[in-house]
Design a protein around this nucleic acid. Structure first.
Length: 554
RNA sequence: GGUCCCAUGGUCAAGAGGUUAAGACAUCGCCCUUUCACGGCGGAAUCAGGGGUUCAAUUCCCCUUGGGACUACCA
């Protein structure tokens, strides 16, 4: 028995498995070469972040177009930062977005798929087996140093580090004798396991990244941590083992991992594993206060939290399509050519994935969403609004249900026609946009919101005449002819050219008359077709609102 | 400090040595129009800077500049 083997025994006297036993439980996947196996591996340290979702979505699409395997692995190795319901929220969000993993562990702890467990905290015995093997081979060693953790520790560490910038960082414990290790263990000192790097700081490594191409960089020369003193590995070690055992072919992750890839590669080497292919994607950004790009963050940007899109009532397709737009520039032109196809018909390709950190643009998202909702039929919009309201605005949900027919008619105005109106970006908008249809929530005082350019006497004269003359029950053309006539008789110009030539001679033009009418009935200057609104509201209600204006206008 | 990534209009971007440098969102103007919209037409707006290589560089190379990431017993 070598010294290394003796140390390994000392450290891990009663491991459950040997490496060979584990390896035999994870056979190679029986798939074609082009079928991608990829994963979403969130750590449940907070609610789902847009940047995270972005990576997930790329991974998902890669597997989707190759009919591969998309699995979910919960990386709960940092018990200190773990948030209680985070895993559940992640599952819910994926579910709501219609993203289905082929393999995962259910919330009840049942593994779906043959490569589990899909939760890292349940895999510590596996990591221990590999750690023991590396120690026995002299490729890793126990470290009894005081641990560094958290931001303050790191900052303190760096103060000195930058001064004496040594290319290699060997740990003081790397050459402890058997006796020294034994003494520490007997004392009951906790230990971490570190990689004994083979490098000296001058070596270089190359790897091929699917997005960035060949990356040629400094090799790892640090005795990095493989197992923390709590017995659980940090990301790097777990990544190497799990992605190998689970047969991942492409690791999709954010580009912040590029710099640690050489370390990951050395772990793969030590373990005797083949490298995986990496796909390092840019981070989604926002414009910072100084006009710089900065990573989108939940702290400053509400849209960075995926729950935001549900709270606002965006249709899931809108969000997915916007993201697809950022990921793959070809999507937008494909969508224009295929306006009605499901986004899943889009042939997603790695080559088209952007290498530039995109700036998140809510305006563009809204545009995509408005187009999408404008193409929906009235019942779908009604249901969308209702589902949203039942969760986030129960008062409005009640109204939608009580006035179901009216609400559907209301949402049908300027809809299901060749060029539908594009006013709703998210279901939350419906209430604000259409509140004048609901007397329960509509404040009639809004009906008095006339622009000050309209003289009070003109408003009164016109509305009075309108009320006495125009019949709402007639056809649209006839109705409008009536409006025009009344407007003319009240001093509004019916000939726009004449009006433009001499605007002061008139109270306004027919457009102004219509604006007055629109405000008197809806309280706003922008609404769908006014005639249809009046039909939906009914004659009595329309007349009652005009009376209200006449009586209260000051 | 070191290592790496990125660089076409305000934003998303096409272009891969020779183009009047696409398109979308936003913006502005005009048209259509009973308002608002929708739609149509048009405008303004981009190759960060400097060196190479080449007959020719937005495109290839180098440097500079700018932005970003990492440099934890976090992921």
């Amino acid at each position: 028995m070598t010294n290394y083997q003796k140390i390994a025994e000392l450290l891990y006297p009663n491991n459950k498995f040997t490496v060979e036993e584990i390896l035999s439980k994870y056979p190679k996947r029986n798939l074609d070469k082009n079928q991608v196996v990829s994963r979403y591996a969130p750590s449940p340290t907070g609610y789902m972040h847009l940047g995270n979702f972005f990576q997930m979505f790329i991974s998902y699409n890669l597997t989707r177009v190759t009919d591969g395997v998309f699995f979910l692995r919960i990386e709960d190795t940092d018990s200190k930062r773990e948030k209680k319901d985070a895993t559940q929220v992640i599952y819910e969000i994926l579910d709501n977005f219609g993203i289905k993993a082929n393999e995962y562990q259910t919330l009840d702890g049942e593994d779906i798929g043959a490569y589990g467990p899909y939760v890292q905290s349940q895999r510590v015995e596996i990591y221990k087996a590999f750690a023991k093997k590396l120690v026995a081979e002299g490729k890793a060693f126990p470290c009894f140093c005081k641990k560094t953790e958290g931001k303050e520790d790191v900052l303190k560490l760096r103060e000195h580090k930058f001064e004496n910038d040594d290319a290699k960082e060997y740990d003081p414990c790397r050459d402890l004798s058997y006796e020294e290790v034994e003494a520490n263990i007997k004392e009951g000192k906790p230990f971490a396991i570190r990689l004994k790097t083979k490098n000296t700081g001058t070596e270089r490594v190359k790897f091929y990244d699917l997005i960035k191409g060949e990356i040629d960089t400094k090799a790892n020369a640090k005795d990095i941590i493989l197992v923390k003193s709590d017995g659980v590995p940090p990301y790097a070690f777990a990544h190497a083992i799990d992605d190998t055992l689970m047969g991942t072919t492409i690791v999709v992750r954010g580009e912040e991992y590029i710099s640690s890839t050489p370390a990951h590669m050395e772990i793969f080497d030590a373990l005797g594993f083949d490298y995986v292919t990496y796909c390092h994607n840019p981070l989604i950004c926002k414009i910072g206060d100084e006009g710089n790009r900065r990573k989108i963050s939940k702290r400053y940007d509400p849209e960075a939290d995926m729950r935001y899109y549900f709270e606002e009532g965006y249709p899931i397709e809108s969000v997915l399509e916007y993201l697809l737009n950022l990921i793959n520039s070809g999507f937008e032109s494909w969508r224009r050519e295929n306006p009605t196809l499901d986004w899943k018909e889009f042939k997603f390709g790695v080559n088209d994935i952007t290498a530039v950190a995109p700036i998140f643009d809510l305006v563009k998202l809204n545009d995509i969403s408005k187009n999408l909702i404008s193409r929906m039929n009235k019942v779908d919009v009604y249901n969308g609004a209702l589902v949203w309201a039942e969760k986030y605005d129960t008062e409005f949900a009640k109204l939608l249900k009580e006035h179901k027919n009216m609400a559907i008619n209301m949402l049908n105005i300027d809809r299901e026609i060749e060029r539908p109106r594009k006013d709703i970006a998210k279901f939350k908008d419906v209430k604000a946009l259409y509140s004048y249809f609901f007397n329960e929530i509509f404040d009639r005082a809004e009906l008095l919101n006339f622009d000050e350019k309209y003289a009070k006497e003109n408003i009164v004269r016109f509305l009075t005449a309108y009320k006495n003359v125009v019949d709402v029950t007639v056809q649209k053309d006839e109705w409008f002819a009536g409006v025009k006539e009344v407007a003319g008789s009240c001093g509004f110009a019916t000939d726009n050219k004449a009006y433009k030539a001499n605007p002061t001679a008139y109270a306004g033009n027919v457009a102004d008359a219509c604006t007055i009418l629109r405000v008197a009935i809806t309280g706003r200057t922008q609404t769908p077709d006014l005639y249809s609104i009046m039909q939906t509201l009914g004659k009595d209600e329309v007349m009652s609102r005009i009376d209200y204006v006449l009586q209260n206008l000051k």
